[in-house]
Design a protein around this nucleic acid. Structure first.
Lengths: 188, 188
DNA sequence: CCTATCTGGAACATCAGTGTTCCACTGGAT
DNA sequence: ATCCAGTGGAACACTGATGTTCCAGATAGG
C-alpha cells in the first residue's frame, strides 16, 4: 500500500468519476452531480465520498486538464523547428485532448487557471514569437490573434471529430491545411 | 392603438427584457431569471408578466435571433458577386450580431432551430457552392468545413471585440484577412 | 472462510430558482 | 381629481440539486 497516491480500486473509481465528469460537463456544463455519477456508473453517494463538493470535483478537473496540457506541450516539442511547424504540431497534439478542448473553450476550465505551472501558454507564446521572427508566420496578425485562430480552429476540428460524420483523417488534414493557410506568412 | 403588436410602454419594456436576456445569457447561459430581470431594470414579477416561462423567453430570444439573422442575410447580399466575396461580406455583417453570436455558438440558440424560415443557412450554402464552382474557394475544403471556419473565426472576432482591448477596426481587418487566406483557392 | 473495505440506496435537511397571487404605488391621460 | 395600465415587492408553494447520515449488501485479499 503506497503512502501517497491511491492504487487499485479507489484509484480506478476516482479516475472513472473524473473521466465521466469531463465527458458529461463537456456535453452540458450545468449537468448535475447525479448525471455525472450515473455516467461514471457510480452512486451519487460514492461520488461525494471522493469529491465532497462540486467545487472540489471541478478543481480536480482543472488539475487534470493542466496535467494533460503539460503532457501535450512536451509531446509537441514546441521549442523545436520553425514557429509555424511548432504550431502545426501543437494542433495535432491538442486535438487529442478531446472533451477537454470543449471544457477549455466553454470556460468551464480556463486555460490559464487550470494550472499555469504546466508552462503550455508560455511555450505557445514563445513559438508564436519565434514564428513571427523567423518569417514563417504572418506578421500582419497579432500574437493574440494567431493563438485565437489556433484554438478556434482546434475547437472546430474537435467538433467535427465528435460529430463522427467526417473520417478522423480528413478532419486532421483539413485542420492542418486551414491553420497553415491562415497563419503562414504571405510569401511562404 | 394598433390591434396586433405592442406599442409604447409595453413594447419598450418587452424589448428591454429581450435585450437583457440576450446580453446576460451570452455571459452566462444558466443565468437566473432574476439576473435577467435585474439587467433589464425590471422586477421579476414584470418579467413573468411578459414571458410566463423561461421557455417562452428562450423561444422569443430564438425568434429574435432568426429575425436579425434574416436581416443580416439581406444586408450581406449573399447572392451577389463571387462566393468568396459573398462570404467576406457575410463576415462583416454577422459580426454586428454581437452577443447573438455567443448564443448561437454556445447552442443556447441553434442556428437552424431559431427559425429556418429566415433562409440564412440556405443562402450561405448557396454562396459556398457558388464559390467552389467559380474557383474562388479552396476545393480541398468541404462545404461544412468552410462554414465552420467562417463561424469559428467570427466567434473569435467577436470575442476580441467584446474584450475591448483591440480596436474594432483591427479586429475586422484581421478577421477578413484570416478568413480570406483560409478559404481562398490556392491560386487566388 | 472471514474481515476490512468499498459500495449504493434511502431518507433527510437545506437551498436556490421558478412560477403564482395579491396588493400598494406610480405616472400619464382624460 | 380621477381613472387605469403598468409596475415592483412580499409572500407562498413547488421543484430539483446539493450535501449528509446511516445501513445493508457486495467485493477484494488475507
Amino acid at each position: 500500500m503506497t503512502v501517497d497516491s491511491e492504487t487499485g480500486t479507489r484509484g480506478r473509481t476516482r479516475k472513472a468519476i473524473l473521466d465521466a465528469a469531463i465527458r458529461v460537463l463537456a456535453a452540458d456544463p450545468s449537468a448535475s452531480l447525479g448525471q455525472i455519477a450515473d455516467a461514471a456508473d457510480v452512486g451519487r453517494t460514492t461520488l461525494h465520498r471522493y469529491y465532497p463538493d462540486r467545487a472540489e470535483l471541478l478543481t480536480s478537473v482543472m488539475q487534470e486538464a493542466g496535467r494533460r496540457l503539460g503532457d501535450a506541450a512536451v509531446r509537441a516539442r514546441l521549442d523545436e523547428g520553425t514557429g509555424l511547424d511548432a504550431i502545426l504540431r501543437a494542433c495535432q497534439t491538442l486535438l487529442q485532448l478531446g472533451d477537454l478542448l470543449t471544457l477549455m473553450f466553454t470556460e468551464v476550465v480556463s486555460i490559464d487557471t487550470c494550472g499555469p505551472e504546466h508552462g503550455f501558454s508560455q511555450s505557445l507564446d514563445d513559438a508564436c514569437a519565434r514564428g513571427l521572427a523567423d518569417g514563417t508566420l504572418d506578421t500582419r496578425l497579432s500574437p493574440g490573434w494567431l493563438q485565437g485562430i489556433l484554438w478556434s480552429s482546434l475547437y472546430l476540428g474537435w467538433s467535427e471529430l465528435r460529430e463522427g460524420t467526417t473520417p478522423p483523417h480528413d478532419v486532421v488534414s483539413q485542420l492542418l491545411l486551414t491553420v497553415r493557410k491562415a497563419l503562414a506568412a504571405p510569401g511562404e
